[in-house]
C-alpha cells in the first residue's frame, strides 16, 4: 500500500488546522471520506479536498508534500502510525501526541511537542520557541516521548516540561529549561541567557558551558554512573547524542531562587 499523501495545492494565506489528519483518525476511511473532512482555514471552514490533493491508501503512514509553515497542529493527539512532512510545518506540531512517529524534514514553528505524552518527533531543521512546553494555562508541559532536533531551537525549550527527552543537536535559545519540572534536555550547541531559570528538577545535558545566573550553583566535576543508562537509551536514535560515552561531567544545581533541585551537566568536563 502507498502512504496516504496530502499534497498542498496552493500557497496558504491563513493557518490551517490539520489535527484531524492523523493515522488514528483516518483509519478505515476511504479517499472520498477523507477528501470531505472539514478543516479550519483561518476563520472559515473548508474541505480537505479544497486544500490538498489526496492520494494513496495506507493511513498508517501519512505524508504531507509541498507543506507550509501555516499548517498547524499536524499529528495532534496522534496515537499510532507515522507522519512524514516533506518540508516545513506550522505551530503545535505533535500537540498532545501520545504514540507513533513524526518526521519533519524542514523547519517548524513554535510550540512543537506541546503537551506531548509519548512517541518520537524528529525535526531535521530548526524549531521555534516553546519546544516541549505546555499550552497556555497548563501548569505542565511535555509529559513523555522523545524529540530530536537536528538544527537549532528557539527560546523557552522545555518550559514546565514534566517528563520525556529533548535532544537538540544545534543551539537553543534563551531560558532553556525554564520552570522545568523533570525530564531531560540535551543540547550539543550553545544555549542562550537565563538557562535553567526557575528550574525545579530535571536534567540539562550541555556540551558547552553557558553563562549561568547566580542561583545556579557549581557542585564540582563527577563521574555519574546513571549516565551510562541514559546514553544507552540514546543509541537507538540517529543522532550524535548516540556517540556520547564519557560519564565525566561538571554538575550545576538550581535554580536556588526556586528551591530547585534541577541539574545542569556539562559534558566532557
Amino acid at each position: 500500500m502507498n502512504a496516504l499523501t496530502f499534497t498542498l495545492k496552493n500557497t496558504l494565506n491563513f493557518s490551517v488546522n490539520c489535527s484531524v489528519l492523523t493515522p488514528n483518525s483516518l483509519e478505515n476511511k476511504s479517499i472520498t471520506d477523507i477528501a470531505n473532512i472539514k478543516v479550519t482555514y483561518g476563520n472559515s471552514t473548508l474541505l480537505v479536498s479544497d486544500l490538498f490533493e489526496v492520494t494513496g491508501s495506507d493511513s498508517a503512514h501519512i505524508v504531507f508534500k509541498n507543506p507550509s509553515n501555516k499548517m498547524d497542529y499536524i499529528g495532534a493527539n496522534m496515537s499510532s502510525g507515522k507522519i512524514t512532512i516533506e518540508g516545513n510545518a506550522g505551530a503545535y506540531l505533535g500537540f498532545t501526541m501520545k504514540s507513533g512517529e513524526i518526521h519533519c524534514t524542514g523547519s517548524v514553528e513554535s510550540y512543537a511537542a506541546c503537551n506531548m505524552v509519548g512517541g518520537l518527533l524528529t525535526i531535521d531543521a530548526n524549531v521555534g520557541d516553546f519546544l516541549g512546553a505546555g499550552s497556555e494555562g497548563l501548569r505542565k508541559g511535555m509529559r513523555g516521548g522523545t524529540v530530536i532536533i537536528k538544527g537549532n531551537a528557539g527560546d523557552r525549550v522545555g518550559d514546565q516540561m514534566r517528563r520525556g527527552l529533548i535532544l537538540i543537536e544545534g543551539n537553543a535559545g534563551d531560558y532553556c529549561g525554564s520552570r522545568m519540572i523533570a525530564g531531560t534536555i540535551g543540547v550539543l550547541g550553545n544555549v542562550g541567557a537565563y538557562t535553567a531559570f526557575n528550574m525545579h528538577r530535571g536534567t540539562l545535558l550541555l556540551k558547552n558551558t553557558p553563562s549561568l545566573h547566580a542561583t545556579v550553583q557549581d557542585c564540582g566535576t563527577h563521574t555519574l554512573p546513571y549516565l551510562s543508562l541514559l546514553f544507552k537509551s540514546f543509541k537507538k536514535h540517529n543522532t550524535p547524542f548516540s556517540q556520547l560515552s564519557s560519564q565525566r561531567v561538571q554538575r550545576f544545581v538550581g535554580d536556588a531562587a526556586y528551591k530547585g533541585n534541577g541539574e545542569i551537566l556539562i559534558l566532557n568536563a
Binding site: 543508562l229 541514559l230 544507552k232 533541585n261 541539574e263
Partner: peptide, 8 residues
C-alpha cells in the same frame, strides 16, 4: 529530598 528519579 536530594534524590532524583530518571525515567529511561
Amino acid at each position: 529530598g536530594f534524590q532524583t528519579s530518571k525515567l529511561i
